[in-house]
Write a protein that binds this DNA or RNA. Structure first.
Length: 845
RNA sequence: GCGGGCGUGGCGGAAUGGUAGACGCAUGGGACUUAAACUCCCUGGAGCGUAGCUCGUGCGGGUUCGAGUCCCGCCGCCCGCACCA
């Protein structure tokens, strides 16, 4: 009987559903919470989803078999810009578009046979989720975790609307094409920077996280020790007698050649009021977008204000005050001193504007002349841990490391009283205001009498109005009087609702906690959070390594502070795994006007279109609609079955790396699953093979280890080996069925439907999904002898087979008596003989 | 620009500092078949004077008895950069 996945997969999915197999329940078993980052409901599922959720499913099913009570939920990150864009482009309402997409994607996900507790499903745009998020917002506001301040946004002067960074292309608005300006707006902020030090220190405890993610977060938080001091100004306007400066390199103070201020610095803003040339320069600077990338890659621009400051170590020494477009008002004090000899940006700036470049140190042993000569064309920036010679030092020894010199300079400044050591963080507070409709409304009201006041909890949820249109750019909430105009919750007079909505990162910062009690009338329920938290294994893309994960770590702390999570959940994700993308080749032709035309993989056969046109094959890249290099999982499931899609997503590439989807690979996966089916379908009546039992137990050990280590591709390889061994074996009858049952159990986390078929064919009791994970018998794993390769001078020349625990001396004797060894030694005396037991022998002659 | 990562046969990849290329795909050969498909068996880094030898893990150096693995310097590609999700 041939394998028929369409029939078989449906049958087992129904069996699991009617047994309610995957409902997560609190019971006496130890719990295991596995979570994959929830999807944005873009319209259809893609292969990236299949890969992500299959990996999570392997873990969930594996842990279930190991006796854990598993929570494996699914939901939707449902607010965000694409829904509004769809409304603008095709009409309709963001809500309808979103829920329609969710319905489609749920129906596409279900045939994959994931072990998900669907009873816990929710979307972040559900009124109940909005309600609980607003309720927590009010608690956090009251706890002092939220405040308002002014911050920059991208402003499109033609569309009169705020743009996301993504909507700015080469400094222009994506729809209007107008030059974008930076504009200040009062916005809501979470005080994440209050937690900078803690979020940094706590990274050390996250042993289940990839080292690279911890490093990225540590660098993002950016703790630095530096000197804060003030420059006395010369003839500056009143109120600006001094300018506060922060520097991480106070040891280079003697190399200072200018002071540089941000265009947004108060002094510059003050000057701009009376100086049109300064105002014009600042306006030019503000035409750079708000992203750090744009600011740092833009050409360095400077403007000499004509004012000067006095050098703190020599009041007679005056430095010019420049305005520089690369100085950020957000970081430090918005003012720096330029020390071009030892900083890339300062060097470029000084060279461009003809400012002096004077070395403060050079390589060890350098003279003043050496050091000055060295930095003429490029700055000298050694590691801070490297010892250098200070030629214009003022604190500490002449020879010291940068670190020592910085410490000495801070000590000097503190002793002399012109500055003090300060610890600063790069991490800024989290701005959550979005001037957009499709997001969680911020539950506050602006009253002329009472100011900005929280909405009353009994008035929650503040629900988005349904009667809005998107034919005009901007936020429809701003022009919706009946929704916007409300009585003040304090005095009852006419007031105005906040029309900004929350950043969607807020939604995704606590959904993991909500899954523990998804239908509760409070944000969380203590007993449920207590039992299910923390997430034991979190799985998602590396692109979320910083923002989403850092915000979630902060939000968990904020929830602990406001009583919505237990203390132990400060770090909500015990272990993290970051998986790679799914890529595909790109097929391109060129139309008569020379423009690129892309073609879907299914329309290309052997590098040709149906009409015979040869396509250009561009190497694999992330699947994207615009390049049409997408494979629809729905088609794969229909043609081959879910197990084939799952198996292929797990085989070949290591999970953390990108995997390339190829038709050949999918067919190979399908071929293997068919072979497994035949093995189970056709069992010889009799035959003995003790080696097969050993192979099966070897496979149990290897597959278990591979799954635990997230090496699914290696688990797949080991299962190929076991299947090959079964195919070649003489074993029959119950002995063969026993091995087939082991195969079924080992396959079950990855290809659960086929595993059920194999299990039941091989006489397994009940369903394999309920079977306990097999244990390898240690006695069957060891072998009595090992093969030792022998190297002569590091090159492999021979091998010997020896008993596993043969003493070194005997091995040495055997090696030196070996014919091949003697031939290669050519009579030379042995200089050294290295025996690594059970591993290798190296003869050095 | 800054931060992080990756780079191994024709392809995806494997390898606690210890036999480079497990496992899979492609290729070539064979069996089965009237034939094909399916399936099964063998082959499967490159070169050469082919019982074997030499070279080979992006490039250039270094440490080591021994380096894909560790260190230094490059090159290329990918991810993130705070309003994409």
């Amino acid at each position: 009987m041939p394998y028929d996945p369409a029939h078989s997969e449906k049958r087992w999915q129904e069996a699991w559903e009617s047994a309610d197999t995957f409902r997560a329940v609190r019971d006496e078993r130890p719990k295991y919470y596995v979570l994959e980052m929830f999807p944005y409901p873009s319209g259809r599922i893609h292969m990236g989803h299949v890969r992500n959720y299959t990996m999570g499913d392997v873990v969930a099913r594996f842990k279930r078999a190991q006796g854990f009570s598993v929570l494996h939920p699914m939901g939707w990150d449902a607010f965000g810009m694409p829904a509004e864009n769809a409304a603008m482009e095709q009409g309709g309402h963001p809500r309808d578009w979103t829920y329609g997409n969710i319905a489609t994607m749920r129906e596409q996900l279900k045939p994959l046979g994931l072990s998900i507790d669907w009873s816990r499903e929710f979307a972040t745009c559900d009124d109940t989720y909005v309600h609980q998020q607003q309720s927590m917002f009010l608690d956090m506001l009251e706890a002092g975790l939220i405040y308002r301040k002014s911050a920059m946004v991208n402003w499109d002067p033609v569309d009169m609307t705020v743009l996301a960074n993504e909507q700015v292309e080469d400094g222009r608005g994506w729809r209007s094409g107008a030059l974008v300006e930076r504009r200040e707006l009062t916005q809501w902020f979470f005080r994440i920077s209050d937690y900078s030090d803690e979020l940094l220190t706590a990274l050390d405890g996250l042993n289940g996280w990839p080292e690279k993610v911890r490093l990225m977060q540590a660098n993002w938080i950016g703790k630095s020790r530096g000197l804060q001091f003030s420059f006395a100004t010369v003839d500056a306007p009143t109120g600006f007698d001094a300018i506060e400066v922060y520097t991480t390199r106070p040891d280079t103070l003697m190399g200072a050649s200018f002071a540089a201020l941000s265009p947004d610095h108060p002094l510059i803003k003050h000057l701009a009021e009376t100086r049109p040339d300064i105002a014009a320069f600042c306006e030019e600077c503000r035409r750079i977008g708000t992203t750090e990338e744009a600011i740092e890659t833009a050409p360095k621009l400077g403007f000499d204000t004509g004012l000067t400051v006095r050098h703190p170590l020599d009041p007679a020494w005056e430095l010019p005050i420049w305005i520089a477009n690369f100085v950020l008002m957000d970081y430090g004090t918005g003012a720096i001193f330029g020390s071009p000899a030892h900083d890339e940006r300062d060097h470029e700036f000084a060279t461009k504007y003809g400012l002096p470049i004077r070395a403060t140190f050079g390589p060890k042993g350098a003279t003043l002349a050496d050091a000055d000569a060295l930095i003429a064309d490029a700055p000298y920036v050694p590691l801070k841990s490297e010892a250098v010679t200070y030629v214009r030092g003022f604190a500490g020894n002449a020879d010291q490391t940068g670190e020592e010199a910085v410490a000495a300079a801070i000590a000097h400044a503190e002793a002399e009283g012109y500055g003090q050591g300060v610890t600063k963080f790069r991490l800024r507070d989290w701005g959550i205001s979005r001037q957009r409709y499709w997001g969680c409304p911020i539950p506050v009201v602006h009253c002329d009498t009472c100011g900005t006041v929280p909405e009353k909890k009994e008035n929650l949820p503040v629900i988005l109005p349904q009667d809005v249109t998107f034919d005009v750019p901007g936020n429809p909430l701003d022009r919706h009087p009946t929704w916007r105009d409300v009585p003040c919750p304090v005095c009852g007079k006419a007031a105005r609702r906040e029309t900004d909505t929350m950043d969607t990162f807020v939604d995704s910062s606590w959904y993991y906690a909500r899954f523990t009690a998804p239908h509760a009338t409070t944000p969380t329920v203590a007993e449920d959070a207590d039992y299910w938290m923390n997430v034991d294994q979190y799985i998602g893309g590396i692109e979320h390594a910083i923002l989403h994960l850092l915000y979630s770590r902060f939000f968990a702390r904020a929830m602990v502070k406001t009583g919505h999570l237990p203390e132990k959940s400060k770090e909500p994700f015990d272990a993290l795994f970051t998986q790679g993308m799914v890529t595909h080749e790109i097929y391109k032709t060129t139309d008569e006007r020379g423009r690129a035309v892309y073609h879907l993989p299914e329309s290309v056969t052997d590098g040709k279109l149906a009409d015979g046109t040869v396509v250009e094959i561009i190497p694999s890249a992330k699947m994207s609609k615009s390049k049409k290099n997408v494979v629809d999982p729905v088609n794969i499931v229909e043609n081959f079955g879910a197990d084939t899609a799952r198996w292929f997503m797990l085989s070949d590439s290591p999970p953390e790396r990108d995997v390339e989807w190829t038709a050949a690979g999918a067919e190979a996966a399908n071929k293997f699953l068919n072979r497994v089916w035949r093995l189970a379908d056709d069992v010889p009546k009799a035959g003995e093979d003790a080696d097969l039992i050993r192979a099966a137990h070897r496979a149990i050990a290897d597959v278990t280890k591979a799954i635990e280590g997230f090496a699914f591709n290696k688990a797949v390889a080991k299962l190929y080996e076991l299947a090959n061994a079964i195919g070649k074996s003489q074993a029959g009858g119950e002995q063969r069925r026993e091995v087939l049952r082991i195969l079924a159990q080992l396959l079950a986390p990855m290809v659960p439907h086929l595993a059920e078929e194999v299990w039941s064919n091989a006489g397994g009791q009940g369903m394999v999904v309920d079977a306990a994970w097999p244990k390898a018998d240690p006695a069957l794993l060891v072998s009595d002898s090992v093969i030792l390769p022998i190297q002569i001078n590091g090159k492999r020349r021979a091998e010997i087979e020896v008993p596993k625990d043969m003493p070194k001396e005997q091995i040495e004797a055997m090696v030196l008596a070996d014919e091949t060894v003697l031939r290669f030694m050519e009579g030379a005396p042995v200089k050294k003989l290295i025996v690594v037991p059970g591993r290798i022998v190296n003869v050095v002659v």
